[in-house]
Design a binder for these strands. Structure first.
Lengths: 305, 305
DNA sequence: TATGGATTGGAATTATTATTTCATATTGCT
DNA sequence: AGCAATATGAAATAATAATTCCAATCCATA
């Protein structure tokens, strides 16, 4: 019997079961994972027990659905393979295989290098594709930056920077403009960890004096990206000439900050709509801060013992 | 004939072909994608033409290998299925299926829900696993938060908030403590976009006066997460009583901020080592800011036309 | 340019996996 | 409680896909 007849017989049966016309059916089949997810959550209540069981499993373990065989998935979820297929059919798919496609597509999508997605989103936003596109762009930029930094960060530098900062009496935090939010976050976190710190703010114009108090027993976290705020560079220079060690977060080895720094990190943030992400810098800043907190605790313990 | 015999016959044949003992073979089979990649690049020169062809294809289209069938992959790469299997065997696998596992594992790894990774990292960091673990933890927390928000953000709310803010004469930005970095970033970005704004700072203790200037023609972006800074809530209340519309970013519908807000966003940030990520909030903040910038430009253009 | 070995193509075979079927159990309703 | 409709389990079957086999081809070397 030719495949075509086979298929149409199957379709007829499903249509009878669900009471839907073919056209309606097609419209309702969720093609992408998010729609599928929503559909499942929507119908969760009205699903039979076993079907609900596999539905829950599917949302909890999407990767297993993407890669497993009907039998293996059914076993993990504690149902029969046939139930899995019924589940797929209830959702409007014509079998497990086509349901699985959606789960596979999801992995492909997610994995398609964020760089590519970012390109696409930039183009989309340029074309005036609404505010959601802008939002997605910032999400993508942040994700890209996180991926990048987690690939490129050098563990040894991290250790070195943390040791250096852990020894400091006071940690000075130096950043302006775009980097300023990071500085305020560091200051907040250091404060919560009871680590003495001083944010070098520009408001009152007393920076020079503030900087003057730092000694070689202290340390500085300085953050600046191109175009480097002249004030940051100036203050970094002064403070390094006083012999205060500097940990710098910046964006290239040509950065003037890198020259003054005892340890420096190169962080490449992706940008979108003219604004660079801060997510990678933030993550690094937090790691430094909490790392210093940990280190001090450890040292304290050792001294007591 | 039982499967076991079948298998051992196959193994013997391969061993003869490659001239390796079983023990040596096992050591050489690349288990993870990176090793496999290196192995392929290493042997690239010495591979026969068709095998080299599929090798190149595999490195260029790893996703296809992960998802395709031997036949479909072979067709895309322009070779016979049998060649694909020979390729796998040359690398020490016992067939296409086990080669494919490596490509699938790669996708799983990359994609392994950040939540799970976060759990693992938290445990690791607790156990004092060094500073890299802390860093990875913050990266994972940030990624999780980004994933979450991009799933849950409501487009309609975004549009509404942007329209509201775009109409404002002055945008006031209100946030303390942990949220303060976001506020400074918003203020920075609004400034760069030439949008009049006022950061409500606490330094000089003049908040009450500042807040008093706001009128219903203005708008507020208020950001606060549990435990809500009392000052933020107080100022939000006052300002909303003056009839100034508020766009709030907060963490639950029970948040006091949500009560005063015209539009509010629920942002669930993952935490690590006691500090919550800010990445999702930052992304949303940037989308709002740039969205307002776009909207004003559009409106300006329309007026001229 | 002949010859042996390696490589390749394509069909045949075998294994695996999805799907269907049907008997049985459960549920909801009168 | 009894009936019909629905849901479930388990095995049989159909479909699909991986693997093997063998003949044909290519390539290096004498």
């Amino acid at each position: 019997m030719p495949g075509q007849t086979e298929t149409s017989v199957r379709e007829t049966r499903i249509m009878l079961q669900t009471g839907l016309s073919r056209a309606t059916m097609d419209e309702q089949v969720p093609r992408d994972f998010e729609t599928l997810r929503a559909t499942i959550l929507d119908r969760r209540e009205s699903l039979p027990k076993r079907i609900a069981q596999i539905a829950a499993y599917a949302l909890d373990n999407p990767d297993d659905i993407a890669f497993g065989t009907a039998a293996s998935i059914a076993a993990s979820a504690g149902v029969q393979p046939s139930t899995l297929i019924r589940f797929a059919q209830q959702l409007g798919f014509d079998g497990f295989t086509s349901l699985q496609q959606v789960f596979r597509e999801r992995l492909r999508e997610r994995n398609s290098s964020y760089d590519e997605r970012l390109q696409a989103l930039r183009a989309k936003a340029e074309g005036g594709a609404g505010h959601r596109a802008i939002f997605d762009g910032f999400i993508a930029a942040a994700s890209t930056s996180l991926n990048d930094i987690s690939r490129t960060l050098d563990d040894a530098h991290l250790e070195e920077a943390i040791s250096l900062l852990a020894k400091a009496q006071t940690i000075y935090v130096l950043a302006k403009r775009r980097s300023y939010p990071v500085a305020t976050y560091i200051a907040y976190a250091l404060g919560k960890l009871k680590i003495r710190n001083q944010l070098i703010e520009s408001a009152a114009g007393l920076n020079a004096e503030m900087v003057g108090f730092a000694t070689p027993a202290d340390a500085v976290i300085a953050i600046s990206f191109s175009p480097y705020a002249p004030a940051t560079i100036e203050e970094a220079r002064t403070i390094s000439e006083q012999g205060v060690p500097i940990v710098a977060i910046t964006d290239s080895s040509f950065s003037p900050l890198a020259q003054f720094a005892r340890v420096w990190f190169e962080v490449a943030e992706a940008d979108f709509a003219g604004f660079r992400s801060l997510s990678a810098t933030m993550a690094l800043a937090m790691a430094l801060t909490v790392g210093v907190g940990e280190k001090r605790r450890d040292v304290g313990r050792k001294r007591k013992a």
